[in-house]
Design a protein around this nucleic acid. Structure first.
Lengths: 204, 204
DNA sequence: CACGAAACTCAACGCATGGTGAATTCAACT
DNA sequence: AGTTGAATTCACCATGCGTTGAGTTTCGTG
């Protein structure tokens, strides 16, 4: 772990000053940040660690993003429209809503960029009341009210949150705890069970 | 029961040396540690912070427990027998297993000592691969194999883990994110839905 | 009542962290 | 070719961390 001087591989004596060639260093920093935040959450990730992964001095992150917090926000920049998702899932045959939602969620998580951001938010929210509050406001304000409005019926909000709780629990078991066999199960293996549960919450 | 610090009333110049009166300082430290670990997880909790809550010098924690890691383990010391739980839940009318399990879990979480330890483990596992591994081994080795063995049928392990995933997700939504209305819902409101889901996983 | 051991605090160490300001190198536009 | 500004690193700073060793006070036993 100690590399002060010459290692045979890449001592890579970085010089000071601007680098030759128009490499996308800023993009590399963002990528490294996403990977680190996804792996450890906000608090456990360090500017120096991210800089090391990006192959860059830590001061450069401040040059680009100002502070650790702003780097975190820049690395997240969520690319999903909650309204559309709700519409998409609730359209079509009502008896197949659960299955459709299950398929949608599982497919979403197979995109690495989406998964990285999800894990970053999850890991951070679990460790930080501040981010937990952001997540709570997003969940309730953007997702639950929309879902519950379309759903109607008795205790619509509660049922909508139970939907989310099962989705969150699956994410934790599958990607954080990584317990087998649930971590390696395919979408097709999970959909029958997960779909039935979600269907049960969505409507009788 | 929470008697914390931060009253302006306590300049209280603590003196050096052993305190008069046989107060249970060690117990106070353990209690403070549980509270802090539950609130923040392992990494975000600091020895100094725990000591402050306990009204004690940080060096005393080392005197008693040796290291932060050993304090964490001592603060956990889980008082639940997984084998008994599985037996208890699976006994009786099979069509009511889901409901019985739901009631059991919700009642368990209403005990503050249990909830604190659960949150400490959860928050720490989500931030630390090492603890996540411990949790994974406990889940799979102690709970899943027992549950799956009693369950039988197709994909018993997968179904057993889905049971746990719903329970974990509920804990996260209710106690970590604290989204309403799920955070304030009573056990009686949750049991019909939760029981049905668990019943679906356990076996029709 | 003496005395050793346990309980408890103080001061300090070495280290990692987030952040800052200046210096150096390169690219782009006159 | 010359200049300007962005990109990049370096050398620090202050802070908080876990941990340690020594010193002080009280308890429990004889």
């Amino acid at each position: 772990m100690s590399e002060t001087e010459e290692t045979a591989k890449k001592p890579a004596q970085r010089r000071t000053g601007r680098r030759p060639g128009g490499a996308d260093t800023r993009g590399a920093v963002l990528e490294a940040a996403r990977s680190e935040f996804a792996a450890r959450g906000y608090e456990r990730s360090s500017m120096r660690g991210i800089a090391r992964v990006a192959g860059v001095d830590a001061a450069l992150l401040h040059h680009y993003f100002g502070s650790k917090e702003q780097l975190f926000l820049a690395a997240l920049d969520f690319p999903i429209e909650p309204g559309q998702v709700v519409q998409l899932v609730l359209s079509g045959e009502p008896s197949e809503r659960g299955e459709r939602l299950a398929r949608f969620v599982l497919a979403l998580w197979e995109q690495p960029e989406v998964l990285d951001r999800l894990l970053a938010v999850l890991r951070t929210a679990v460790g930080s009341e501040q981010i937990a509050q952001v997540l709570r406001e997003f969940m309730v304000g953007e997702l639950i009210v929309r879902l519950a409005a379309e759903l109607g019926g008795d205790q619509a909000e509660l049922r909508a949150e139970l939907v989310l709780s099962q989705i969150i629990g699956l994410a934790v078991a599958r990607y954080v705890i990584r317990a087998e066999p649930i971590a390696s199960a395919t979408a097709d293996e999970l959909v029958p069970f997960l779909g039935a549960t979600l269907q049960g919450y969505l409507g009788n």
